[in-house]
Structures are given as C-alpha cells and as structure tokens.
Amino acid sequence: MYLFQRIEEAAFKQNDARRTIGEFILEHRDQLPELSMDEIAKRTFTSKPTLVRFAKYFDYSGWTEFMYAFTHEVANYNENAYEDVDPNFPFSAEDDSLQIIEQLVTLKIQSIKDTVSHIAVEDLNHAAELIQKAENIVIYGNSPNHYYGELFKRNLLSIQKKAFMSNAGENGLISCSLNEKDCAVILSYSGNNPDENPTSNVKILKRSGVPIISITSGGKNYLRDYSDVVLNISSKERLYSKIANFATQESVLFLLDSLFAKIYSLNYEDNKKNKIANAKVLESKKRQTTHKDLFEPF
C-alpha cells in the first residue's frame, strides 16, 4: 500500500490530529515542497512536535524523512498517472451515457497498461510454476476479490487443477490443512492487516511451509513481506474516495487471467485436449446455437 493510501486510511479511521494533518497533506500534496514545517503546523492548527509524531506513526524517523518519501511518491505518481481520466471519479454528473462509456473504456485500458508495466515476467513464471506443481490451490479474498477468485478457480478446475475458494468462516481450518505441496493465492488490495482476513492466514501458511502468491497493491505492506511471489495491482485508486473499484477490478482480473494463461501454456497441448474433451461431456447438451460462427459439431 502506497504512503498516500496509508495516510488516507489514517485520516479516515482516526479522529485526532492525524485526521487534520492527513487531510491537509492529501489536499495540498502538490504544494507541500513549497511549505515549511512551521507553515504546515500553522495551517493545520497543530505544532512541529505533532507533525513529528505524525511522521513516526508511519514508521519514519522524523518529518524530514516523511516529507522526502511522500513528495517523491507524489512525483512518481504524477509521472505515471492515468492520462485523460481520473481513476477515482472517471465521469461526472454532467456526462451523458456515451461519455460515461468512453471514460470507462479509457480507464480500463489504462488500468491494464499500468498493470502490465508493473509485471515482472520472472514473478509471473514463478507463480505459474508454483501452481502447476501444487496438489491443491486455495484462493483467499474478501468481497469483491472473492468473486474474482471464483473465476480463477473455475479456470483452474477446467484444466484439472484442484482449486478451492476459502470461505471466511473456515479460513483457519483450511489453512491448517495445507502443507508445502500445496499453494495459497491471496487477493488483498491493501494487504496490510495481519489480524484480519485474508492476511490473518499468512502466519498459519508460513508455519506449514505453504508457498504464498499474493496479488496486492504497490508500496509497502504486510502481505508483500511474507509472500513467495507478488503480482502488483494497479494502485492509482484511493481507498475510500471513489465511485467504484473500476481500475482495481480490471487490474486484478487481468493479473488472474495472465496467470491462468501462463499455467495453461506450461502444458498447452494436454490442457487443450482435456479442456475440449471435458466441455464436450459436460456442456454439449446444454449449449446450442444456430449461429454458424459459434456452432461446433460434437
């Protein structure tokens, strides 16, 4: 999770000076390099020691180190920001239906492009190899990631990989049943709370030697520190101030599709043969069409 997202989270959850300072920093992020510590303290009705405590809350030694990290993150964020569309509010109340559609198309395309720019091929290959050799693959994720995980599970089942979606009430039991021959896939945008699902399963999984593949946001977080492989979600959305998870959803689905495609390619011909054979057995009587481009004789 990026620093600006951690600040947003603190400003949302806390009801003290951290909210006041956090909201000011997020609102004036582009002007911060021009403001002195005294000016920021004055404009937030706080003090220099309070600003230092704010910085230490995010594990920085002091205000100077915190400001250096934040301003550099903002510069990098602006350099790689989505063009022509705001990932948090891609359309306005004045936009008509066609404008809304065009903005969403632009957002989703740029989300995929940003995701691709953060994919390390060696990480994708490593993740695919872990799943390929695993006896059981268990996928963890809260809503809406749970739904994306279900699609990934279905794809894996279609090539005869034993995949399961962990249910919230049984996460602990399922995690305890796994071992080093299995594999866990954890979907978490923030990946930052070791006491809440799905990251609460990490300690159990690590104790049992279970390989962990995490799909999470960029920046520092708990999940990244304990995963064997990390695939990066496009992380330009705010945690709370947005219409919906349009960009994140597209990014997660693309990563899962890319991972499945790589797994499929590791045993391409057998997977192709088995997938078609299974489809003929399971779906031939259910799916019928008169469209000549879709019709297949069985």
Rank of each mutant, 00 (worst) to 15 (best):
N274K: 15
F152K: 09
T289D: 01
K236E: 10
T248N: 03
Q31K: 09
N80E: 07
P194Y: 05
T64W: 01
L35T: 04
F298I: 15
I40Q: 01
I212G: 02
T50M: 08
M165H: 08
I263E: 01
M67F: 12
K42P: 01
T46H: 02
T290P: 00
D86Q: 02
K203L: 09
I174M: 15
G172Q: 12
S111L: 06
R43P: 01
L266Q: 11
K292S: 10
P87F: 01
I101L: 12
Q110F: 05
S284E: 12
S97R: 13
W63D: 03
L178E: 03
P144V: 07
N274D: 04
I25A: 00
P194A: 06
R18Q: 09
F246D: 12
D114A: 14
R154C: 03
G209K: 06
Y189D: 10
K273N: 12
F295A: 03
R18W: 04
A163R: 08
L51Q: 08
Y77A: 04
L255F: 08
H72Q: 14
I276V: 14
H28T: 10
S234M: 03
Y57N: 13
F4W: 11
S234P: 05
N197H: 09
L256K: 11
P90T: 05
G172L: 13
Q99Y: 03
K56Q: 15
K133R: 13
I109N: 11
S214Y: 05
M165T: 10
G191V: 07
A128V: 10
L51D: 08
F4C: 04
N171F: 11
H291A: 05
A163H: 06
F66Q: 02
T71R: 04
F254I: 02
A41F: 06
L255T: 09
E196V: 06
N155E: 13
D38S: 09
L26C: 11
